[in-house]
Computed example of a mutant assay.
Amino acid sequence: MGQSSSTMSSPVIIPAAARHTATLIFLHGLGDTGHGWASAMAAIRPPYVKVICPTAESMSVTLNAGFVMPSWFDLISLDPNGPEDRAGIEKATNFVHGLIEEELKNGIEASRIAVGGFSQGGGLAIHAALQYPKSLAGIIGLSCWLPLHKDFPKEAKGNLTTRLFQAHGSADPVVPFHWGAETSALLKQFMENSEFKTYPGLSHSSGEQEMEDVKKFLQEVLPDN
């Protein structure tokens, strides 16, 4: 039986420190929560940017021997050509779209909303952006891959010209570096403003230089207005 949305924790929200004119939605990786990234994102966002870090529902994850943990969708295989949880990925994508729509209702335009994430969350952020018809400000994908990559570019609905900052550590033992590089190569075939940055020696985590680069990216795609 599927879990109801009532099992979803409320997102961690860091209000803007100045007049709220832009929003960043950032999605955690497998087994983490919104708290895992909220303070890091709050430290690098411009003061007029509100940060939303939701927490995924807890579910049984096939790849982790069925253990229950926060996960945006089930992970079935480590093979890029292996089976994927299409229904779960689509449900999670709709959830992200719902967060974007809430910000639109609050008077923030799509062009002032950035979406991003780490690992599974980064992949979901890119997927959700490509499935969203309105143009967003920017997309951030850290240490990630693109779910349902065979759907693209055919199934893309928008954000093909939106700036994407994709980053990956060269020593990542969890999401292999070549996954990130292959994802970038695919995205660059149809996304005009896609950047892929490598961090030598970085494992499956973020580093100081990477966070500086994300900070710079946010300032560029969400300038003061």
Rank of each mutant, 00 (worst) to 15 (best):
R45G: 07
H28A: 05
L148F: 04
T183P: 02
S135V: 08
F26H: 06
A167P: 10
H97M: 08
Q189H: 03
D32Q: 13
L78C: 01
K216M: 10
D213N: 15
H127C: 06
I14D: 13
I108M: 02
V175T: 11
G107R: 06
E57F: 02
H35A: 11
L142M: 15
H97Y: 10
A137C: 09
N81A: 13
Q131D: 08
W179P: 00
S170R: 13
S135R: 12
P200D: 15
T183W: 01
P153W: 03
C53F: 05
A16C: 06
G123W: 09
E192L: 14
Q3E: 11
S194Y: 06
S4A: 11
A17Y: 08
G122K: 03
L218K: 05
E90A: 03
T93C: 14
A22F: 08
D85M: 07
A42P: 14
S6Y: 09
V49W: 04
V51R: 04
K216G: 09
F95Q: 11
H127I: 02
A18C: 06
A129G: 04
A129V: 07
A181E: 15
T33Q: 07
C53A: 05
L164Y: 13
E90V: 08
W179M: 14
P147Y: 04
F165M: 11
N225V: 13
F196D: 06
E103P: 00
T93L: 09
T161I: 05
V96I: 14
G82C: 11
A40V: 05
T198W: 11
D79S: 12
P15N: 07
A38M: 02
S203Q: 14
H149F: 04
S184P: 10
K105P: 03
F196W: 12
N159M: 03
L124V: 03
A87F: 11
K215G: 01
A156M: 10
M211H: 01
E90I: 10
I100G: 02
R163Q: 13
F95C: 04
A137N: 07
S111W: 06
K154R: 15
I113M: 08
K188I: 00
G88F: 01
L27K: 02
Q120L: 09
S5R: 11
H28V: 08
N193F: 06
E90R: 04
S58T: 11
A167G: 12
L187P: 05
I100K: 07
K150Y: 08
R45T: 14
A42V: 01
Y48S: 15
Q131V: 00
G121D: 00
S71W: 09
Q131E: 13
P15W: 03
E84P: 02
G180I: 05
V221S: 02
L222P: 09
V115T: 00
E101C: 06
S4G: 15
N225L: 15
Q3N: 13
L187G: 08
Q131A: 14
